[in-house]
């Protein structure tokens, strides 16, 4: 029998981010033992469930894979609900269940000018994307965020790819950022480039609209609520442009913008 895609891993390290800027206890990099995966693609995700959830918190939580090295799997989370609150108390040696890698990741075209559009926590899968890109000189990252920059695992990206970030402190900052997104998407489309987006739903909706207006090739990573991650609970369904229902966990979470309704 093949090896199960389900495994139990020990926590190596839980590293808080953004503490210098008053974000104590809200942003964390979670480093786990490396699972016995044969490979993964940036944009794919995993289901993660600490043993400490017991039966009280039944669902695992989906997280985009941030990075995987020879001995370490990294994901990144922001504390938002009761699951991530409990995850914020993980200690080295604690056990977590993991299944993955799941779904379909981002398109990778080494020689194509590629624009990565990230909103907030949407930066996470792009850490691995930039790191694993064979020609990072073709990659440009545009990152909009509300919290201070050091709350996010963005430090390694600028070392390899062109990098531009903007913090939203007021509503007009967002308008300025989105204008910049449109401008960059236009340049990208002019070079027959590829735009990849990950972030909150309104951000994805805007990127999709821009891609239609400009005629830019774009992919969007959806973040729908899900219980299982494998296509059984039918909680994460999205609508194809033609109307058919698809599970974001199996057919996505990354979709071509012109093929999905957001």
């Amino acid at each position: 029998m093949q090896q199960s895609a389900y495994c139990r891993l020990n926590v190596r390290e839980l590293t808080p981010y953004g503490e210098a800027n008053g974000a104590q206890g809200r942003f964390f990099a979670l480093r786990l033992e490396r699972p016995a995966w044969t490979g993964w693609n940036p944009g794919q995700f995993l289901m993660l469930r600490p043993a400490s959830f017991g039966l009280e918190i039944p669902w695992a939580r989906p997280f985009g894979i941030c990075d995987m090295t020879e001995n370490c799997l990294t994901c990144f989370f922001q504390v938002l609900g009761r699951g991530t609150q409990r995850m914020a108390r993980l200690k080295p040696g604690d056990e977590v269940s993991v299944w993955g890698p799941l779904g379909k990741g981002f398109a990778l075209e080494p020689d194509t000018p590629t624009l990565l559009l990230a909103g907030g926590m949407g930066i996470v899968p792009f850490v691995g994307y930039v790191k694993n890109h064979p020609k990072p000189e073709n990659v440009t990252v545009l990152f909009g965020h509300r919290e201070p920059l050091n709350c996010y695992p963005a430090d390694s990206i600028g070392e390899r790819a062109q990098w531009e970030s903007a913090q939203e402190r007021a509503p007009e900052d967002r308008d300025r950022f989105l204008s910049r997104v449109r401008e960059r998407m236009g340049e990208c489309a002019g070079k027959n480039g590829l735009a990849l987006a990950c972030g909150p739903l309104p951000f994805l909706q805007t990127v999709r609209r821009f891609s239609q207006e400009i005629g830019a090739r774009a992919q969007l990573s959806l973040e729908n609520r899900m219980a299982c991650g494998v296509g059984a609970c039918l909680g994460c369904v999205a609508q194809r442009a033609g109307g058919a229902s698809v599970c974001a966990c199996r057919e996505g979470p990354v979709f071509w913008a012109d093929q999905i309704v957001v």
Partner: peptide, 18 residues
């Protein structure tokens, strides 16, 4: 099926209206 949200986690369980 029904519109989303169709599932929600509760204490030690979940609700579905798929």
């Amino acid at each position: 099926g029904n519109p989303c949200p169709r599932i929600v986690e509760t204490v030690a369980g979940m609700l579905n209206a798929v």
